[in-house]
Write a protein that binds this DNA or RNA. Sequence first.
DNA 1: AATATTTGACATGTAGTACATAATGGCATT
DNA 2: AATGCCATTATGTACTACATGTCAAATATT
Lengths: 241, 241
Amino acid sequence: MKSEKRSKGENNFINGLEPIVTLTMADRVEAQLRKYLKEEGFKPGDSIPKEIEIAETLGVSRNVVREALSRFRMLGLIESRKRRGMVLARPDVLVSLERVLDPYILTKDTRKELFELRLILEMGLADLLFVRKTEKDYEALEEIVDREKLAKKTLDRIQCDIEFHAMLYRIAGNNVLKRFQKLLLPVFQYVVEYESKHRDSKWPLVGEIKHQDLVNILKSGTPGDFREAMYSHLKPHFDHV
Amino acid sequence: MKSEKRSKGENNFINGLEPIVTLTMADRVEAQLRKYLKEEGFKPGDSIPKEIEIAETLGVSRNVVREALSRFRMLGLIESRKRRGMVLARPDVLVSLERVLDPYILTKDTRKELFELRLILEMGLADLLFVRKTEKDYEALEEIVDREKLAKKTLDRIQCDIEFHAMLYRIAGNNVLKRFQKLLLPVFQYVVEYESKHRDSKWPLVGEIKHQDLVNILKSGTPGDFREAMYSHLKPHFDHV
DNA sequence: AATATTTGACATGTAGTACATAATGGCATT
DNA sequence: AATGCCATTATGTACTACATGTCAAATATT
């Protein structure tokens, strides 16, 4: 899975000539092992063959096997204990994303698409919110809104804005989603900052509908109302799209 | 980041005594390197120190360094060429997820949450769809709907259902989102299959609104209409929530 | 005999050496 | 100027050795 991107745009002047892929042993062992574990139906808790056995079976050095296993360990696919060998584990879906979601190394396109993803998520949140919301959630939201109203510095208002939206995700009661949002946050901030620099728009960037309105609708409106309101709220961002 | 879960619930009988974390060298080198690269502001294209230098600086064996680098290589964070050394690359956000999103090793909870994520995504898709849709997209959707109407076998209908929804993601014109959906697909299928076994409900599971209706609304309705329709369409799934 | 302790075997973790491989840049040849 | 050759060098792979912690059997203790 090594990316074989050419350095310049000078390729494909000879059409139909693909660069030869030269996977390292570690890459191939990783693929082989993944295939093996899948096909043999290994499940979390099962222990897998020892390093040496793998190495000998595949005809590679133990070193190479360890590089592949090291990758699995990082992803949480396996856990290894001395003497005990290694057992398959349940990886956390998001730890892998965690290691890659750095706004500074993403392409502009990817950042843009991830930002769109945020808009999609927040628009789609409505129904889950209405299913899971409780009285306490109103209080938490109101508290944030109050703080926002009192905030003088722009930075404080931004902070409240972030907290408000984060709270919505929390109310939705979906842990993966909440953590996903947390991971995406730096990307959002980067994009917004970047945008605001290039358009000197004021910030936070909100439409006609304010946070207070959203809370009110959440209290006594319908999911449909909320979706419309959220769209208005996010409209300035949608307009960039 | 080795998971340090205790075997039993027998810890914290002495409060304030945290178990000593015993990270492997590879883990620590990985963390150190990540920190180093971030703090020094390395960007894609920059070349990073040689393995030996890293090993000597950190006072560990080259082997350990290579295990850490192997992880970065897998994630696409770096690319290495002989003689040239190693350069930072732009990782693809989703390759990491790709390696972990196997429905069989996820917990039931996670599968459920990922399924909810799907519902959220599809509900939130509406606005982007209306911005990006073209005449050609209608044709593609109609073609799938037609095929679905003619399909006799359940399996074929399921296939059409999948294609229809996949096409919606495609129309939204967000590449990351489309690929994300593709990655999640096996999880959805697993969940639906699992559910249908435990409730012997018929399948595909759709509400009052059929695919044909969605296409019509996409053609001549509003994003608001579409959201309502999509909710009706997915209602049986929402009801599980 | 039942329990506590010691001991040895074993799998992973780390270190170190050696060599293979391929890309680079310079030099020589045409 | 283009090609071919060669020394250099960083990564890729292999192998050996030992450290570390853990399981299990053997031993000692009650």
